[in-house]
Design a protein around this nucleic acid. Structure first.
Lengths: 211, 211
DNA sequence: CAGTTATGATATACTTTGTCTCAAAATGGA
DNA sequence: TCCATTTTGAGACAAAGTATATCATAACTG
């Protein structure tokens, strides 16, 4: 952990804060470098002493949050009962999560975190990898679990977090983790028609999607 | 269906084609209006005679595809066996789907189609609406179904469509539609521990996420 | 306190955006 | 085919934004 000049720390903090404030104010695309330095009360040239462009500032600002997310998912804790930690974290950093999940400028970061999460799911979930009986490739299931979690957080934040984190964790566990594992471990025909449903699969789905 | 001057049709087609080609070539953000008109072999000013900016051109280019997608989902056919149509459509229009699902410039369009799909799922799937026994709100389930479908298509295209559309439709049906409906219609404790799993839910998940 | 480093202010070259004008070309209806 | 209408090409142009350079001033570290 090397020591950075206090002025540099302060300047970068101001630039990052200004960017976040401006994104909330008028959206990422509409922001100019001048906007950022004005809002941060810094000289125009100062921006370029620290970042190449807007994207680099945003990426570095999100990097910290992204790394914290990855910590949660490096260990298997995400997938069992402690999915709660992610939603708690999202709540505490809801502005940055919102930007990460919604801003056009965060597209590449979002893509990367999605890939990383999927890779971690695949790595930590052994039965997912070895479940080759069904029609669903493990890789697809892993991407589904990882992507859906981000989708769920996105929905939650977009709707002003109407439920507490622990409830979201339960929803996540049932709707995504549980449902996916069930369907992967106990594939369709046997699972759906014989073991699970009171009704046959076809019957359920026909009945489900018509008024 | 009003008649549009042949020159106008041709110009707009050229601009749209140029934009798509340039996105594939160097990505949406790096493209300038000059790039587009050069690539389309048109005068610089001609662009502004038809579109306000890059975003408007992209949006209008995607609008047709978006409307076609909405047709598939307006009727309940999406959720039952004919999810196949979407994947077929995605395959036939894979370039535009890729741009829709990946380009930063398509963020707002992507957001809108996601909302529309979710609303259609909620509207056409009666049991989803009335399933209030479990912990999962119908709205959340609908968003999950709609969002996950787009995620699945995105994964498919990003990985160069390694499976045929009919297999993707089966995966979609099991992994998303079937799994979600099961978990919503037959909520957690009863569903997971008593009716479905040979193993208890907790047991399954503990066993699942550790080596 | 002294040497080093960062910032402010300003200038500037370049790129991009968006609008305008007018002559030339293409169009579609008579 | 002719003609009035519309679109386009070519270029000029202002305005805005990007990105870099310089030098005096201020702030920091040891």
């Amino acid at each position: 952990m090397e020591k950075i000049d206090r002025r540099v720390r302060k300047t970068r903090q101001q630039l990052g804060d200004a960017l976040v404030a401006l994104i909330l104010d008028k959206g990422y695309d509409a922001i100019t470098i001048k906007d950022i330095t004005d809002c941060a009360d810094l000289a125009h040239a100062t921006f370029y002493r620290h970042y190449r462009d807007k994207d680099e500032l945003l990426t570095q600002k999100l990097e910290q949050v992204v790394q914290e997310i990855e910590v949660f998912t490096r260990e298997p804790s995400l997938q069992d009962a402690e999915g709660y930690l992610i939603f708690k974290h999202a709540q505490e950093n809801c502005v940055l999560y919102g930007i990460l999940l919604n801003s056009p400028g965060a597209t590449s970061v979002r893509k990367r975190i999605k890939e990383t999460l999927a890779a971690n799911v695949l790595r930590t979930c052994k039965p997912l990898r070895s479940a080759t009986r069904g029609i669903i490739p493990p890789q697809v299931a892993a991407h589904h679990i990882a992507g859906s979690m981000l989708l769920l957080i996105e929905w939650w934040l977009d709707h002003d977090m109407p439920y507490p984190p622990h409830r979201m964790a339960k929803i996540y566990k049932q709707l995504i983790t549980g449902a996916t594992l069930n369907v992967v471990l106990y594939p369709a025909p046997e699972f759906a028609t014989d073991l699970v449903n009171p009704l046959k699969t076809d019957h359920v789905e026909e009945a489900s999607f018509s008024e």
